[in-house]
Computed example of a mutant assay.
Amino acid sequence: MSFTWRYVVRPDGAFCRIGNLDGSLDNVGDEELARLHPVRDEDKQPARPCSRCDGDVLLHWHGPLMTGEWMELCPACDAHRPAARAFIHWYRDADRDPKKLPSLFEDWETETMHAQGWARTPQPDAPPSPPAPLSLVPRGQG
């Protein structure tokens, strides 16, 4: 079983990510995926101050499942962290490239969770393919 994320980026920079179990969404185009996951009122994040400096945050996000952690992207508090800084630049860029979001988000998530004492476990390698079947022929006929 494999698991990856698919990201939907809207023109205003808002985005969501959808679990892609065993590649079930691999053949779904970005526009169709956006239609399947429209913006709902409950998706809108209320403005909230940074828990560290009371300044404005660009994004707040629940940490990975079962961690109970809360992640904030604050330009004032996080500009010194490489992954956060790159994500801040992308987030503020009017010409943001949606294709860069997955790696920027995941790097920021990893960096943020590491700062809170968590480490990402390596993904297991794909199981090896079974060996090709042998073609057996009687001795002297091959």
Rank of each mutant, 00 (worst) to 15 (best):
R85D: 10
T67R: 14
E111L: 03
I88K: 00
T67N: 10
R48L: 13
P131F: 01
I88A: 02
N20A: 07
Y7C: 08
D78P: 04
R10D: 01
V39Q: 09
R10I: 12
A86I: 06
A132C: 07
T121N: 12
H80S: 10
C50L: 04
A47E: 12
L65V: 14
W5R: 13
K100Q: 15
P128Y: 05
D93R: 11
E111M: 00
V57T: 03
G23H: 00
Q116R: 14
C50N: 10
D95F: 09
K100N: 10
G142P: 03
P131K: 01
D95C: 08
W5N: 13
G117E: 08
A47K: 06
R17V: 06
H89R: 15
D22I: 11
L136R: 14
A34W: 05
R17Q: 12
I18S: 02
E72Y: 03
N27L: 11
W61F: 08
Q123F: 14
C53Y: 06
C77N: 07
T4F: 00
M1F: 13
M71C: 02
H62N: 14
E106Y: 01
S135G: 06
D97H: 05
D56C: 09
M66Q: 14
Y91R: 00
R17I: 07
F87W: 04
R10W: 06
Q141K: 15
R81A: 05
P98Q: 10
S129D: 12
R10T: 08
L25H: 05
P133C: 06
N27A: 12
E31R: 14
P38K: 05
S2R: 15
L101V: 07
Y91T: 01
E32S: 09
M1A: 14
D125R: 15
L25D: 01
D56G: 07
L136G: 03
M66G: 09
A84R: 03
K44L: 07
D30P: 05
I88D: 04
M113W: 04
G68L: 01
D54V: 09
P130Y: 08
W108C: 04
T67H: 12
P128D: 09
P130L: 05
C50H: 08
P102K: 00
G68F: 03
E111W: 06
C53V: 08
H114E: 14
D30S: 11
G55I: 02
P138A: 09
R81D: 06
G13D: 07
Q141F: 04
C77Y: 00
T121W: 11
G19D: 13
D56P: 01
E42S: 12
S24T: 12
E32F: 03
P38F: 01
R17G: 04
H114R: 15
G142T: 11
G68V: 00
P138E: 13
A86P: 00
L21A: 13
H89N: 15
